[in-house]
Computed example of a mutant assay.
Amino acid sequence: MKKLSMLLCMVALLLTSCTRNEKQADATAVQPKVTEDEPQGRRCAAMDVLNEQLKADPALAGRMAAIENLTARVQKDKSLLRLQADGSILIPVVVNVLYRTTAQNVSAAQIQSQIDVLNADYNALNSDYSSVPALFSPVKASVGVHFVLKSVVRQSTTKTSWSTNDAMKKSAQGGINPTTPDSVLNIWVVGAMSGGVIGYAQFPGGASATDGVVIAYNCFGNTGAAASPFNLGRTATHEVGHWLNLRHIWGDATCGTDYVDDTPFHNAANYGCPSYPHYSTCSGTPVEQTMNYMDYTDDACMYMFTAGQKTRMLATFVSGGGRTLFAQ
C-alpha cells in the first residue's frame, strides 16, 4: 500500500525523475506506430506536460505541494470533504473542436456520447462496473460528480498535427482560448497529435490559461469517428482523472506510487487487455488493477475507480484544492 508520507517528496522528485520514469514505463511494451485514423497504443502526455510546466513556472511546484498537503489531510480526515461527498458537484463542460477534415469536426452526437460516458464512469453506472473482480470489489467506488455540456466551440484549422505545447488552447497560435476555466472544464478535441499521443490533461495548480483536457478526435466519445481500441470514451475518463489530480496507477515509475492507499503497486503501464489475474513483481507480488481507469489498457478493459481515488479527486473541490469553484 502506498504511504502518505511519500506525498511530501513528490514535487522534489518530479523535475529529476518523471521523464526517466515515463520512458521506463513505456519501455515495458512494444508500441505500434499510431496513425491519425487508427489509434493503437494508449499514450497520455499529462506527465510530460507537467514536467515542462514545472520547468517554465518556478511557482508551480509550490502550488502543487500545497494541494498535496491538503489532499493528505483530507485522506486522513474525510470529514473535511463535507458537501463534496454528497454527489452534488456539477461540472460544466465546454468542448472546443479544432478540425481540418470532416471527420475531425465531431458531431453533436459524438460530443454528447462523451458527456454520457463521463457521467456513467464517474457514477458507477457503466455496464462493465459489475465486471470488477471480487478481489477489488471492496474498494470500487462511485465518485459522485456529474458533467453537463455547456457549449461547443468549433474552428477550422490547417494543422495536420498538434504537439503538447498547448497551442490548441491559444487563439494566437491557431487554437481556441478556454472558456472561464476556473469554473468550466474545457476539453479540446483535435486531430492527430505528435508522438502518438491521444490525450493529456493539466493537473490542479497549473495556469488558468491552459487548464483543461486535450483528446484526439478518434478517441473521443463512443460513436461517430471514435476508433477502436479507444472508442468507448475512456480516454476522457482517464484524462479527467488527471485533471482531478489522479496519477497513473503505476506512479510513472517501476513500482511507483500514485499516492492512493487502495490501489496495488504496478510494475509499469499495462496495454491492451491483460488476462486476470495479472501479477506484479513489486513487493508482495500483488494482483495489478489493470481495469483501473488510470492504467493504459484499452477502453473495453478499464472500468473502475477506487475509494481512495475518489477521496483524492473530491479533495480538489475543498478550499485550496485547485477546483474549488466547481463546488460552489
Rank of each mutant, 00 (worst) to 15 (best):
N218V: 05
N218L: 02
N218Y: 02
N218D: 11
C219Y: 14
C219L: 08
C219H: 14
G221T: 04
G221D: 05
N222C: 13
N222Q: 14
T223Q: 08
T223M: 06
G224A: 03
A225W: 01
A226G: 06
A226I: 01
A227P: 02
A227T: 15
P229E: 05
F230I: 01
F230E: 00
F230M: 01
F230V: 00
N231H: 05
L232E: 15
L232C: 04
L232T: 11
L232I: 09
G233R: 01
G233K: 02
R234A: 10
R234K: 15
T235E: 14
A236D: 13
A236E: 14
H238Y: 03
V240A: 02
G241D: 07
G241K: 05
H242Y: 06
W243Y: 15
W243M: 07
L244S: 09
L244T: 13
N245C: 12
N245M: 13
L246E: 03
L246V: 05
I249A: 12
I249C: 12
W250K: 10
W250L: 09
W250P: 10
G251E: 07
D252H: 08
D252V: 09
D252C: 09
A253Q: 08
A253T: 11
T254V: 13
C255L: 04
G256R: 03
T257K: 06
T257Y: 02
Y259H: 14
D262Q: 08
D262V: 01
T263K: 01
T263V: 15
T263Q: 05
P264I: 00
F265T: 09
F265C: 09
H266S: 02
N267T: 01
N267Y: 01
N267F: 01
A268S: 15
A269K: 15
A269C: 13
N270Y: 07
Y271N: 13
Y271E: 13
Y271M: 13
G272R: 05
S275F: 10
S275V: 14
Y276T: 08
Y276A: 07
Y276E: 05
P277V: 06
P277C: 06
H278L: 14
S280W: 02
S280R: 01
T281S: 15
T281G: 10
C282N: 05
C282Q: 06
S283V: 12
G284N: 00
P286S: 00
P286I: 00
E288F: 01
Q289H: 12
Q289V: 04
T290E: 05
M291K: 04
M291G: 11
N292A: 11
Y293Q: 09
M294I: 00
M294C: 00
